[in-house]
Computed example of a mutant assay.
Amino acid sequence: MKNVGEARVTPTGTPQEELATGERSTRNRVARSILDHGPSTVADLAGRLGLTQAAVRRHLDALVADDVVEAREQRVYGARTRGRPAKVFALTDCGRDAFDQSYDKLAADALRFIQERFGGDEAVVAFARARIAEQATGYREAIEAAAPDQRTQALAKALSADGYAATARSAPVGEQLCQHHCPVAHVAEKFPQLCEAETEIFSQLLGTHVQRLATIAHGDGVCTTYIPKISPTADHPADPSTDHAPDIASASTAGRNPA
């Protein structure tokens, strides 16, 4: 695997090295922007980074050559407009690895050991729920401190602090929570129980049914969770440590794209 923005430089102190170092730094910024915001067009990246579109295309060409990003056709939700959809650039698995410092193989081996020695899939589910419940302590505090109409935003901010690069945006009759990075994506690919437990905890924290639409572990560019408009009476999200969570109709498809 090549490092993000790997560049050949000449001996220290030469103008060529300074140029290459600057190029590598900018290339890293381009890749990081895609990590933080999800699949992006050239125009998106140019606007966020203050670069010309020509400069962005040059860096993207290098990142594509290094197998850090790949070009995709932009997904269009709802009615398509005339013309071809804009091309977007997303991180490849190799590109995510450049940012991901998780011990994926060790974690997968540990979960496989739990599965084989301590109760099969039920043991993995129990581990996944315990893990996310512990993480969710901070998420619950953030949500309870937020106004009812700001809870999804508060959850996104708390998730971002844990490395998920999350955002919240309006959707028809609700909101979408988007996680542009998943530190455990490779493990979740083998053990979707991690995604299912996360979906359950989101429902408990927000006090409403949620639906997982897509996941990075399944090969999608972003983990996307649909959150219907929350009733004004849901002033106190459920405590994820309790056993009385709302029914999760989408739990069986969490970690998979139902499309």
Rank of each mutant, 00 (worst) to 15 (best):
A20W: 02
S40V: 13
T10K: 09
D44E: 14
R32Y: 07
E17S: 10
R48E: 04
V9P: 00
P15R: 14
G47N: 13
L19R: 15
D44V: 14
V30F: 02
H37K: 08
A46N: 07
A43L: 15
L45A: 06
Q16Y: 12
D44N: 15
A46H: 04
V30C: 05
L19P: 07
T21M: 09
A20N: 08
D36C: 15
V9E: 01
A7F: 06
R29G: 01
G38C: 06
S40Y: 02
S25H: 08
T10R: 10
E23F: 12
H37M: 03
E23I: 15
L35S: 08
R27I: 07
L35R: 15
S25C: 00
T26H: 00
D44K: 09
P11E: 02
T12W: 06
T41Y: 02
S33K: 03
L49Q: 07
P39V: 07
I34W: 01
R24A: 02
D44C: 13
E17I: 08
R48P: 00
A7E: 10
R32C: 07
S33G: 04
G22N: 04
G47T: 12
E18K: 14
A46W: 04
R48F: 02
R29T: 06
S33T: 14
G47M: 10
R29D: 00
G47H: 12
Q16M: 12
P11C: 01
T10S: 11
V30D: 02
D44F: 05
E18H: 11
G13H: 08
V42R: 07
G13D: 05
G13M: 05
H37V: 04
S40D: 13
L45W: 00
T21N: 09
P39K: 04
S40N: 08
G47P: 01
Q16T: 12
L49S: 05
L19I: 15
R48W: 02
T10V: 11
V9C: 05
P39T: 08
V30S: 04
T26W: 00
I34F: 06
R24I: 00
D36G: 13
R29Y: 00
D44M: 10
R8Q: 10
Q16W: 11
A20D: 10
H37S: 08
S25N: 09
P15D: 13
G38F: 05
E18Q: 13
G38I: 10
A31M: 09
R29I: 00
V9G: 00
L45M: 03
T41W: 02
I34G: 10
D36I: 15
V42Y: 00
T41H: 06
P11M: 04
N28F: 08
P39G: 04
S33D: 06
A20R: 13
G38D: 06
T26R: 09
S33Q: 08
R32V: 11
V42A: 07
R27S: 10
T14K: 07
E18R: 15
P15L: 14
L19D: 12
R48N: 02
V42W: 01
P15S: 14
A43Y: 12
